[in-house]
Design a protein around this nucleic acid. Structure first.
Lengths: 233, 233
DNA sequence: TATCGTTGTCATGAAACTGTCACAATAATT
DNA sequence: AATTATTGTGACAGTTTCATGACAACGATA
């Protein structure tokens, strides 16, 4: 489930910071300092993505990127380039080499994660997405279909994503902000209260039949999706 | 609930980096630059751990460590020392002063967090995000759920925080002021007696079944949460 | 262009939560 | 026993937080 990410970066401080952020976000990080090390490590735990520094000792990262993208086996691994500044020329060279995205240093952890997720989503659209079945609710991410007790539901895109998130993160309270980050995406400016409305829409959609109260309000904290029934009131 | 960590470090860059990492990990950071500032801030939001720089303007950190460890109230607060290098001599002095662990700069965020968690786990047996089980009371900080003898409880936010604090700080008397600091937060102006009312509400919620008197009144001092039954007076 | 579905925001009322008080109950002290 | 200090308890009002319905903006589509 957790994605392997290869971090190719020679500055120790930056490398460790990146790895820290990655692991914070549930990614599995592998590190390499040089091009050679990266090439050696690429085969072993076949990475799902490569974070590649632009400037590396013994050659530019573009070189590595190009060679990876020309190799039949590594061609499909998405690459995000880390550049010191947003030089148009570098950017062009990078994309020519086949990189999928780039991030300019210094970057915020949030931005980095957002880019990674975006690239992964773009490259591997809905891989390893299995149908979820939770107390009668069935969600098929591939077919983009939800049913409850075999009755098809008609959800809007946002409700679908919200339900999908909840189904993969049950029994845990999420603040409105966390939900916004996870369901809407990081750099979007939306009111906290908007979550409430979508919660309501989702509740309305999945209520009606059988088990009620899948979505529980935790006053002052957020919402929780749970199969267990809430105490009383 | 979130742990209070006091960071005593005079170099602004390092201090901010540490605080960033701490808050990333759900810790609550308080900062101090000097020994005096540290001593002043130690009382307010009673910290769960202190990160103490070895070299501080106006004296070494050991001095502060020693005085803290000799004081009855601050004795139990775990201290992790930040040292510039792994000097055996420093290390020995530190442990003599009573520190619980040390980290040599430069350190990786990962290591720092790992050490902190290790020390906290060692000192307060209850692990961080894990469910606490205490004489039939179960509190799940993640799901934000409390049950007593498998019956779910419905607590308000303040009662929840209060119970969580007690469950992570059992067998020890806390004054109303200390409880206010720890559960309500430092800069709130609330009457002392308000604590009484919340204590009562919490008592009411967790009473009813089986073991009574989890919360014991210590006249003139405060309250104590305990699994042992109080003799008589 | 008109229609439809979706979405973010807002206003409003309901419900829950909280701090404070007055007074009762209890413990400590004289 | 009487007095004093401290705590328990129920009630209450102010505040905060949430659910809900309505609505306009937007984009897609016919």
């Amino acid at each position: 489930m957790s994605r392997q990410i290869l971090v190719v970066e020679d500055e120790a401080a930056i490398r460790e910071m990146i790895i820290f952020v990655l692991e914070q976000n549930g990614f599995n990080a592998i590190e390499a300092e040089t091009i050679e090390e990266a090439q050696a490590k690429i085969k072993e735990p076949y990475p799902d993505l490569i974070l590649l520094d632009w400037m590396l000792p013994g050659g530019t990262g573009v070189k590595l990127a190009k060679s990876l993208k020309q190799n039949e086996y590594t061609r499909t691994i998405p690459i995000i380039m880390l550049t010191a500044r947003a030089d148009e020329d570098d950017k062009v060279k990078g994309f020519e080499a086949g990189i999928d995205d780039y991030v300019t240093k210094p970057f915020s952890p949030k931005e980095l994660i957002a880019r990674i997720k975006a690239v992964i989503r773009r490259v591997t659209p809905t891989a390893l997405e299995e149908t979820i079945d939770f107390h009668g609710i069935t969600l098929d991410p591939v077919a983009h279909r939800v049913s409850i007790n075999n009755n098809n539901l008609d959800l809007g895109p946002t409700e679908f994503r919200l339900l999908h998130f909840f189904l993969t993160h049950t029994e845990r309270v999420y603040s409105r902000e966390q939900l916004l980050d996870n369901v809407w995406g990081t750099n979007v400016y939306v009111e906290d209260r908007t979550v409430d409305v979508h919660i309501r829409r989702l509740r309305k959609a999945i209520s009606g039949d059988g088990h009620e109260d899948f979505i529980q309000t935790v006053r002052g904290s957020g919402y929780r999706f749970s199969g267990k029934i809430q105490p009383s009131g």
